[in-house]
Design a protein around this nucleic acid. Structure first.
Lengths: 194, 194, 194, 194
DNA sequence: TATGAATGAGTCTTCATTCAT
DNA sequence: GATGAATGAAGACTCATTCAT
């Protein structure tokens, strides 16, 4: 007590980057929780605790914001994939290893819903397609190094299916189940080609 | 109150059932082409060639219309499934037979987008979940009779993945690829249980 | 049993007057229960159990229907007034007699709300003013024969007040209270003039 | 989503408080002139000279606006009542004094119509009843201090009647008439009780 | 004559976007 | 740069009215 405050009545955050981040985080939460259709300037501003005007200052339009949000959600998936990639390289049973990782992903509602949002957006807006393809393509690439391309694609398609399954069920597929299916895919006869 | 001007030039046809159908068809087209979020009374009325007010005459609310639309799209999938069911029963190679059917489905943009719309809707609105589950559950049931439940579920999940794949790519997976993966799944060791 | 019916599949009411009456009754109920603003063709048709089109067949416009409804409600008040008139003529204490009648009126929610509706309509639409004036004017006329015009008007104004009171309170004024006030009004010194 | 066109030519002033006031004033005028049923966003916006959207910015819903409007009109009545209260305390003839005040009120069309609007609203919406009761109850309270409760209520009811009378006639009751009636009421035998 | 389908103006409300402060 | 007031274009929905059947 007795310390004199600089008397700054409004301690506004002066960090534009943090502000932008707050907006994006709020947008991501809304997208994940209520779907991309619920993304409005007002909702974002309220959730982020910033002024309404800030949302249009940092993002030219609501479409921009939506895309940036999806991109960020895609980045999160990428981050996760980097882990998978590393785990796969230090593991001698790709099926078990990948299943374990994937099941961690499937119980994370945010990730599952983010994936669905990405697919939805991509399906109705071609310009957003690359966002959704990033994760599938990269996963296939990573896997291809271990099991060949055809099996990698098959596994990736199956894992996409598990995400959809998780989005529609309260309980995702068990790790045992996923492991067995992946093992079957990884041991399927290789065509050699492609 | 009560100071409305006459009305229109001339009402169109006079066939309620056809009208309802036209509205539903228009709604389905919009949903498939632009996603369920693009479904507005105006858009539907314009596409169906009916007056704005007609859309609320046949469907109490936009949510009703959306649900009816999704239900109709779900019914189409069901119709397709009935075929698959029958084909499976007269075919001695489930993998080949199912792959052939599925690839016919995957090249049908309408079906693919309808499926994505169903999943999207279900993911953000629990009350619509049953619509999306209908097709996956039924497919699993049909398959279970031939290959056992675990393989059936695995195949169904994989096929869900192929739908997502088709929604994100210009060219769907080849019949050969799908066949091979399904064969791998159908020949995976049975756990006996569940 | 065994009597042969004329086989009239649809025993529609063929009584136009009864139909018109049914519509009017329904309109009156709605007006009294929910206010004149709630009077719509749909609501009336539904309540009267007639087709939507009938409401516009019997009444050229919603405004017509509204006016006819108010007129009918006004007629009911008139009917009541005829009783008062007669009772007054066979009673030697106008205050007591009138208070008794009035209190019978005040406990009748329909009558009270009808009166308020009439006043409301008249206040914002000059062309309906005569409807609302009918009852006040007639009551004053009837009373004037017994107590002179000035006292008659004073009583009528007071009774209007009791209607408003009843509309705003769960329990109307007691008969004793009304009697005493009317007695005071009826015994106030006459100016002789006017 | 998100495909809105630029916006307007140029926003007007920048005074929220004045704006809110302008909206409320416009709403009051409409209510008084055409009745509460004529209160629409469009009408208010047009009369207040603000954009349509501004009306919902300051009042969450049309019901909110309506209630705020009635409350304001009720406040005006209250202001008038405060005067009456004061005048009564400095005057030795309550009847004359009150009649004078009341007749000033009755000549003010705005006040009269506001009162009718309050009563109408209260009659069909119980939650607004308190607004309409405020003025009657307060008047009765003020009067009770001078002439006892029974006479106070009687006078208040009579005065309510004079408001209805004024709403339905071009010329309100004369001061002399009102004075005489009030005098009669104020001199009526007291029951002692209540 | 009775019915209810069809129409479109109008109501409430939300929202993207602009911009004065 | 930050804020939130202001704007007007939809969007969902209601309803008076017309008129084919």
């Amino acid at each position: 007590m007795g310390e004199h405050e600089p008397a700054d009545p409004r301690p506004r955050k002066r960090d534009p980057e943090a502000r932008r981040r707050a907006i994006l985080d709020a947008a991501a939460e809304i997208t994940v929780e209520q779907g991309a259709a619920a993304l409005t300037h007002r909702a974002v501003a309220a959730r982020a605790g910033v002024a309404l005007g800030s949302t249009t200052r940092y993002f030219e339009s609501i479409d921009d914001l939506r895309e940036a949000t999806l991109r960020m959600l895609g980045d999160e998936v990428d981050t996760y994939l980097a882990q998978v990639e590393q785990e796969l390289s230090t593991c001698d049973d790709p099926a078990e290893c990948l299943a374990a990782s994937m099941c961690g992903f499937l119980v994370d509602t945010r990730q599952v819903h983010a994936s669905v949002a990405l697919v939805t957006a991509a399906a109705s807006d071609a310009s957003l397609r690359s966002l959704a393809l990033r994760w599938t393509d990269r996963l296939a690439d990573v896997l291809a190094e271990h099991v060949g391309r055809e099996r990698a694609v098959a596994a990736e398609v199956y894992l996409d299916g598990t995400v959809i399954h998780a989005a529609l069920h309260d309980v995702p597929l068990s790790r045992e189940t996923v492991t067995r299916v992946l093992r079957a895919i990884f041991t399927m006869p290789d065509t050699g080609g492609r």
